[in-house]
């Protein structure tokens, strides 16, 4: 915890703290896929209600669409993981 000695303005503790805040902000990206997957699942449920015979097809299509919609949330997760565990902004 050397805040004065090194003469650098941004020392490691500061960078680690900011990285943790940034990681927390990055996983807010999870909101979007949550809403999107919920909408997809709701419409799939409505589709099965109208046509119960097509349950298998509807489920497959829903899962595929949800997995694609999930990608943006996963990018947020990756950014958070990189900030937390790889420390890309650390000076040494």
């Amino acid at each position: 915890m050397n805040f004065t000695g090194s003469g650098e303005m941004f020392n490691d503790a500061f960078i680690l703290g900011c990285s943790a805040i940034g990681a927390g902000l990055a996983v807010i990206a999870g909101i979007g896929p949550g809403v999107g997957q919920g909408i997809a699942a709701g419409h799939a449920a409505a589709a099965v209600g109208r046509n119960p015979g097509a349950k298998g097809d509807v489920t497959g299509t829903m899962l595929l669409g949800q997995a694609v919609a999930e990608t943006t949330g996963l990018y947020g997760l990756l950014v958070a993981m990189l900030l937390m565990f790889v420390h890309p902004f650390k000076t040494n």
């Binding site: 694609v68 999930e70 990608t71 996963l74 997760l77 990756l78």
Partner: peptide
Amino acid sequence: ISLSLRLFANVLSGTV
């Protein structure tokens, strides 16, 4: 890139 990142990030999130 998106194919591999999707698989990687999903499994990694479970592992974490």
